[in-house]
Amino acid sequence: MFVSDVEKAASMNLMPSRSDLKAEAAPAAKPTIAMIEIDHVSQVFQTSSRQDHLALSDISLTVDDGAFVSILGPSGCGKSTLLYIVGGFVAPTRGTARMKGNPITGPGPDRGPVFQEFALFPWKSVLGNVMYGPRQQGVKAAEAEAQSRALIEMVGLKGFEHFYPKELSGGMKQRVALARTLAYHPAVLLMDEPFGALDAHTRTRLQNDLLNIWERDRKTVLFVTHSVEEAVFLSDKVVMMSRSPGRIRQIIDIDLPRPRRRTELLLDPRYQKYVVDIERMFDDAGDDELQP
């Protein structure tokens, strides 16, 4: 999809067509098959005053195997909820979510979440946290430890194996959370604003690390963020959502070459155009503003 297409997409704002989703082949050479299908999913929550609150309204989305898909949207539009449904933590009120064609009924090690709050086990060291998944999968202790040490080194935390989460900075905790999830080899990574709480510098470094890992393993990634730049920089596809009720407004394919280098990309007019266009679309929406 090129620049003019983006503008065209902006004009047909409220009618995301299914054909849009399949418009582009994934950049990977392998054949594209649907890894995750979200099929007419709605989510209703009961508020404490016992009123129904429609958090997600009729969401349909297909994520191809090996794709990096970002979800952008104003606060409260249901991004986390959508991720929790794919994770199997929350059952949708209506509709179904499928993984490789099978309905999702609960959490499983094929889908690894990385939460914004890190959610590391405070009673386990860095090594203990990373080893948890492999041990749970029945990997022998010595082997799990060797794998985990390698992962910890890969995320740049060699020497911190025996530190506890409270002794780490925010960026270091985020790396541990990523390593803990990667350790049990999920086919899909579900990342909920993983870099939201980090300073700009750490954020850039972790974005690069994540891209390197993704380009090497070609995992499927569903990535929630508030940052338009981050979404464009990382993704093959950006899903734009709107609020009240949460629905998909637009899906935009990001057609930028890989491997991507941040410094080169920042100067690339195509990248700049994507960022500006997406921001304009949110501005035009009026009812809700995009959080920084």
Binding site: P107, G108, R111
Partner: peptide
Amino acid sequence: VEQKLIWSAMAAGT
């Protein structure tokens, strides 16, 4: 106990 801790463990196959 934080819900996300429980979810993290469930996702890891507990």
